[in-house]
Design a binder for these strands. Structure first.
Lengths: 116, 116
DNA sequence: TGGTATAGTATCCTAAAAGATACCGTCAGG
DNA sequence: CCTGACGGTATCTTTTAGGATACTATACCA
């Protein structure tokens, strides 16, 4: 395990997961299973159609999610995690956990600063 | 655990850890312990002084690393993980692991595509 | 007297991510 | 015949991240 700095692979995982919307999409699909495009959009207030499409395409490209198109009108497209995508679950959950703690930790820091 | 989408805290953890340099800095300090500014810089080829300073300040701000200035000339400043910062370790290691696997997975996908 | 080492700042610039907005095709139902 | 639902594209603008470059202070050493 020498020279871990130059061979840091954290970035590879990070790339998949970063962004304003990707973690939300992944957690949502992990917890809720298969969802339609419109359901995803409704559950993410503030996201634009373009952004959602882009994020979904990128996740699909990396084999994290699966896209199934039903040939009907109006269109129906369903998204779900792939088996491979589900391997991200521990990381996402760990970050969610840590993040929840971190919100508290920051409050603690703030109140310490106020006293000083 | 309802409505996890709107209360997604992954972003909180992600913010700490994202960027071209932050994961590298954190992993380095986790593995190598206390390091001087110049040592950090040397171990990260390509980083500019400005960037390194900025990343370190931000990590310090979030209580992830500790900055100790020795009042001497030329200056000596040492950086190390805080106890709190070390709680990121499982996440970083998990991402490093996953990232390493992901590099292989991508190669598999590519060769499958070539066959088709 | 001038150069070197260390740990920075201060400006300016580019590239990438994100967002706003408008548009598209098509079938069913009124 | 017109409207709405659905799942998109196509442009354009704004915001943010990152990088290049030049500058700083000060003690020490030759």
């Amino acid at each position: 395990m020498k020279d871990e700095v130059s061979q840091c692979r954290v970035e590879e995982a990070l790339e998949i997961v970063v962004g304003k919307w990707k973690p939300v999409i992944i957690l949502y699909l992990l917890h809720e299973g298969t969802k339609r495009f419109s359901e995803l959009k409704r559950s993410m207030p503030g996201i634009t159609q373009k952004m959602l499409t882009k994020q979904l395409r990128e996740l699909e490209e990396e084999d994290i999610i699966q896209r199934v198109v039903y040939p009907q009108v109006p269109p129906k497209v369903e998204y779900s995690m792939t088996d491979y995508g589900r391997t991200l679950s521990p990381i996402l959950e760990a970050m969610h956990e840590w993040g929840t703690q971190h919100v508290l930790h920051k409050k603690t820091l703030e109140s310490v600063e106020k006293q000083a």
